[in-house]
Design a protein around this nucleic acid. Structure first.
Lengths: 143, 143
DNA sequence: ATCTTACTGAAAATGAATGTCAAAAGCATG
DNA sequence: CATGCTTTTGACATTCATTTTCAGTAAGAT
């Protein structure tokens, strides 16, 4: 699966005339190895640990590329840090965000997706993507 | 309706030991008179036009208070500006965001709300609020 | 009217994200 | 494998939204 994504990225890169560099390989690798919803800072620190040479500007730049390539997407929570999550082809998931411990639970619901499409059609709207975040307290934090 | 909200804010203010000031009155007034989804900058400019004395720090501070009071909520789009929308008690609406012209269409869907609750229950999650944004092209921009 | 404490405005500070630019690296070519 | 052209990079500067600071002002209880 990780291999597929690397191939996908290479394809994207060549189609755009981008070059394949050590930095991009490393960043993609480490991004893919992280849990969902990494902030740039988290990712940068992780990268710096094994590859001290790579600068954060490059991490920022590469993450944008991953978004363009359809491998990652940005999520904005309410802590002022942009986070990036993995995009699985065709699949979509949404988030339960715990405001107590900041943990994120993912879920998927086909019925909601269908309803969204209906709503879009009703408004003559062409959906590109969407995000849904439910805020509250997780089981652990309710006590 | 605007009056109700002012009362609600006063109630909140006294319950928290906050003082009632001219600035807060003005900001709440003008916030309530705006369309949905004002950015702080937009609101600040509007306020400055009629009340040149009020500083933007106060606008920022007061908007946070409105959120605490349950009268406003933050929305994060992808343009680096936090926006605030009106919160109607009990009611909830979501957004179709056009990436072509940046217009926002609101909608409400009871079935989706119900499904969200089911999902929350299934995960032992206590919902406080939620956001859903669907990105794409509006009817006008599809052409 | 006085006193305490919260509030405000202006300016400085912060912090995420982006831009700049010279040096380095990719990669097509001879 | 040297050459030359172009993209990419890292370090640093810059931008821009938001937050903090702080001295002065104003609420509102007594």
């Amino acid at each position: 699966m990780i291999l597929e994504k690397k191939k996908a990225f290479n394809l994207f890169a060549t189609s755009k005339g981008l070059r394949s560099t050590r930095q991009r390989d490393v960043i993609l690798d480490i991004f893919l190895s992280t849990h969902q919803h990494v902030s740039v800072e988290e990712l940068y620190l992780k990268i710096k640990a094994s590859n001290p040479g790579i600068g954060q500007a490059t991490v920022y730049r590469t993450l944008k590329l991953l978004v363009d390539a359809g491998l990652a997407s940005e999520i904005l929570l309410h802590d002022g840090q942009t986070r990036y999550e993995h995009v699985m082809a065709g699949e979509h998931h949404d988030h339960l965000v715990c405001t107590g411990c900041n943990s994120i639970i993912e879920f998927e619901d086909e019925t909601i997706e269908k309803l969204q499409n209906e709503i879009a059609v009703r408004h003559g709207f062409l959906i590109k993507n969407h995000k849904m975040e439910i805020y509250g307290l997780c089981a652990g934090c309710r006590k």
